[in-house]
Design a protein around this nucleic acid. Structure first.
Lengths: 238, 238
DNA sequence: ACAAAAGTGTTCAGCCTACACCCATGG
DNA sequence: CCATGGGTGTAGGCTGAACACTTTTGT
């Protein structure tokens, strides 16, 4: 579907008041980052709309796959943003003016949208982001140095950051942020990074191994001084 | 708004693809129950649609208040049901035939609806349920003896029942199911009921008191044999 | 007096915490 | 050979589990 057709006819093929936004979280250089797209001088979250013939969940997976290329990604529901003033006709108008495209006040994307937000933990190395129709570029943005963010997407990003902190205590999905094989010190640093606090190294290791979720692999070939760490990977489900 | 106008024009005043369904949970006769409405021979959850001028959250509160009369109720988001085949034109058609009302295939309520589900813990004694336009009656249905439930609402009810079991370990919202003043034995029985397992009486009492959430009131005047229990209420936030 | 209900106490096991210790490796 | 990093061990404390004890009250 080309852009003009999408703007004029998209409401016939999509649910006209629902959108999906995904906070795609990665980890590199000892830093938590999220994938953002640049539209002119502002940044926003990867997102999209729900087609008539797909479920909400399928739409989220499709959007995630379109932006990352990932086949079987981690994906978790975050929350609903449903304020009555949540429409962005002024923002769209200004944006269309900037890129010298015609803007019509009856484009369906000017509707009020309730957005369903998700977050996804991915391995940056395996992710090959692709920009969408209106996007100039993408970037992995550190949560500590967020740029000018469009619409209410900053609120969504921060909610995801907080939710991750809560979820880490219950769930064991953080390995999605690392490569298939990882060491305990790596996982330890990651958890400290997410929780923004020091965790006892000894206790962390024992707790993780006690879950029985990981299987030990041969030691890593190392270059740095010190004993070589074992590598682990998530046990395959039997 | 009268019924005919709602059916023909409702899409102009509501988000046309979003609904809200609420599992309203109460507790009476040592039994967890949920509020259901009768439409002909089937039962369904209290629900409604989102008006253009209200937020999703306000809509949920409005719907909850319309059905229960409650002013400041407990309300918590449950989940999204968003399957692509989630429209119920056949069901509506059959229902309209039964009540001898005209049915049009282009009524907006035949649309595909994504439903946002919530659950609410209420005190049955303080709740004065009111039926909606199409409802014959209401009833507090025990989770163990659910009737014939319309659409996919049974799935929603069961998800709420399971979520409550999970949430009880983290949150302390169960007092919403009891009267303002309650005793520890009452709270104890309630928790056992929700978790469907025995809880050590001694430990339960100490754990609850250790939260510091409750303040002790004078002992209850009692009739049954045994020592009179203290009454408690939730501490007011300072 | 006795049984039932409610509140509190006691013991033991297991887990969390905070380190200490040991081993491997590179400079 | 020593600094660094990584794996494991251990003593102390806290918390939870199971059950015992005591008090209160209706029958």
């Amino acid at each position: 579907m080309d852009v003009q057709q999408f703007l004029e006819q998209g409401n016939k093929h999509h649910l006209p008041n629902l959108s999906i936004d995904i906070v795609i979280i990665g980890y590199a250089q000892h830093d938590l980052k999220c994938l953002m797209l640049e539209m002119e001088d502002k940044w926003l979250l990867p997102g999209g709309y729900i087609r008539n013939e797909e479920s909400v969940n399928d739409a989220a997976l499709r959007i995630l796959k379109e932006r990352t290329g990932l086949e079987d990604p981690h994906l978790k529901f975050l929350s609903v943003f449903g304020h009555q003033n949540r429409f962005f006709s002024e923002e769209w108008k200004a944006f269309f003016a900037k890129i010298n495209l015609d803007w019509q006040s009856d484009y369906w994307i000017n509707n009020r949208f309730v957005t369903l937000t998700y977050y996804s933990l991915v391995n940056i190395e395996n992710t090959k982001p692709k920009v969408g129709n209106f996007d100039k570029s993408f970037a992995w943005m550190s949560f500590d140095k967020l740029p000018d963010i469009w619409l209410d997407h900053k609120e969504i990003v921060l909610e995801a950051r907080n939710r991750l902190k809560e979820d880490i205590k219950q769930e064991h999905s953080t390995h999605n942020l690392l490569a298939e094989k990882f060491t305990m010190p790596e996982l330890h640093r990651l958890h400290q990074n997410i929780l923004e606090e020091e965790l006892d190294r000894s206790r962390f290791q024992k707790k993780m191994l006690a879950t029985g979720l990981f299987e030990r692999l041969p030691k890593k070939q190392k270059e740095s001084p010190g004993s070589n760490p074992y590598q682990y990977r998530v046990k395959s489900v039997d």
